[in-house]
Design a protein around this nucleic acid. Sequence first.
DNA 1: GTCAGGAACTAATGCGCTTTAGCTTGTTGG
DNA 2: CCAACAAGCTAAAGCGCATTAGTTCCTGAC
Lengths: 352, 352
Amino acid sequence: MTRRLPARRPTIKDIARRAGVSESAVSFALNGRPGVSATTRERVRRVAEQLGWRPSTAARALSGEGTATVGLVLARPARTLGVESFFLQLVSGIQEALAERSFGLLFQVVEDVRAECAVHRRWWAERRVDGVLVVDPREDDPRYELLAALGLPAVIVGAPAGPLPPTGAAISTLWADDAAAMAAVVGHLHALGHRRITHIAGLPGLAHTRRRIASLRAEADRRCLRHTASVITDYSDAQGAEATHRVLAAPHPPTALVYDNDVMAVAGLAAAGRRGLSVPGDLSIVAWDDSVLCRATHPPLTALSRDTAAFGRRAARHLLALLDGAPPVCVLADPLRLEPRGSTAGVLQDGS
Amino acid sequence: MTRRLPARRPTIKDIARRAGVSESAVSFALNGRPGVSATTRERVRRVAEQLGWRPSTAARALSGEGTATVGLVLARPARTLGVESFFLQLVSGIQEALAERSFGLLFQVVEDVRAECAVHRRWWAERRVDGVLVVDPREDDPRYELLAALGLPAVIVGAPAGPLPPTGAAISTLWADDAAAMAAVVGHLHALGHRRITHIAGLPGLAHTRRRIASLRAEADRRCLRHTASVITDYSDAQGAEATHRVLAAPHPPTALVYDNDVMAVAGLAAAGRRGLSVPGDLSIVAWDDSVLCRATHPPLTALSRDTAAFGRRAARHLLALLDGAPPVCVLADPLRLEPRGSTAGVLQDGS
DNA sequence: GTCAGGAACTAATGCGCTTTAGCTTGTTGG
DNA sequence: CCAACAAGCTAAAGCGCATTAGTTCCTGAC
């Protein structure tokens, strides 16, 4: 049996032998440290390249250099996962930025925040990651304290201005301005003549859910709209449809619905169709977070759109900056744009 | 400034000191090796637990134990990513299985297979992963040879029976029976009276695309359907809609369309609506791969359904088995079930 | 009573890398 | 001509763990 043996990974020792220098000289040469002449450095570099050498992350990590890996945990019940375009897009953007620096992304999906904390703790104890990205910030989020205690650098993605991470910790924040986005939506609907607006909100524990609910109320007050409301769901298509039926069956049903994600908006559109309502003739629909879904329906859905991949890229870059020793920052993400499409139109009359 | 110092990671040295034994004894005790008494073992275990100790993956990897990490690369243009439920579900299942054994999942998205090969090579050189999961097998796939040469254990997910990986390599295969699924779809449509069936296929390079196209042709021949065809797309909603318009504008348009993913099916449904066709009255639609999307439209889409998370779990388990030294296997995944919903119905007449 | 042999443990080595300390040269100032 | 010093290199230690090679002590067999 003459099967080719699996290639052996080249090490710094191989390079040293071939280049005729010591291992330390190789290390200096390849890491841009002083202590070797320019000619030696160049020679070592060539040999390394020729051998296809790459530093072993394990060895690097062991000698205190970090693992060149960052972690991302998604804490969502499996049921509500796997359809929103948001996360895959976000992840795609995140590691586009990471790939530029040859960082890896360690990824895990868990059921809830408790489990997520356990994962962070484990990753830290196993020295698996240099930092983490935290999504879906919550009211009274236990993760900030944990990460601060562990000394694990982090970037919180989509946080509200509210509960700040402990000062002193290496935790940056990239937050989306939900209030401005909600104001834009309400403004759009109000201008079209809508007075009864219902918000089909997502998971109640999430900070941005609370924030959107509060923003709707504030904006409604400002405009003297007295028939607005938010109802809570779990982001699933099932609850999106169910909530739609429920609010449309009420005595004075809304004329416009704002959904907290694209999946529920699509489900809501179908639910409205089943009730014999035409969109946008009888009912206007707005989706929070745009995706091909919103463009694929008939009519296409008016949506709050953003470049989610770019959002992820920015988050990852902030984390890399933290790992490079930059001070933590709290920055505002690009605003969401309201993309008017066929699912919103004016109302002829409304009994507000 | 009295900020609490970040906790220091405990090592086996700490345990050894607290338990009053040598470091080796600790290692033996915690790894279930012989060489320590039951009482000592128990004491060491308690101390370790109390300290929240977990082995450093870096140190473990360095001493030849592997990294307890597997890799997954998605080679899809960013455009076609981020909406199919398939991948997030698959990933969710994969690491549910991995989590049971405290394995990590390293995840990367790249543009094409060439880039994917580079990633595998880099992961191997950096000793980042013990094995990889390979999705979207292709005709003449360069990855099998590469992984075999690197000696990187792998599981190929969704492979056709066709191009087998090199023998001797630690490569398992978990394949889906596309032929049977296509036969079920054609059988369903044929029974409803459809004679003109068009298949809106996905990316041409993928092995399963070729396989589905061939299966449609074979099944059509068997049933003497002379007006079937497959058209190629890139899985995006845009091309799905475009292809739909194109085939429906032809002289003798099909009465049934089979889409290679849920996104295109939804886009196709909308496109049909824009052409004034009613579904299922004028046109029947079947989606390959079910998701909430298919249930959220009006009418809901008849779809080929499977438990994608379970599929991922199985794939991950096969990889773990390989890492444990089990011989490579080639097994058939659970069959796809045809889920008839509102988007398919009988035709009154058809000029076949 | 001695010696083989096993149980229970400790010491030492290596994995691949970074880093500190040390060791040669050659150069320069006095 | 030698001290002082820098440049360019090598030797060695350490990161945390697994593992192999001892070491000690105790038991049982003869």
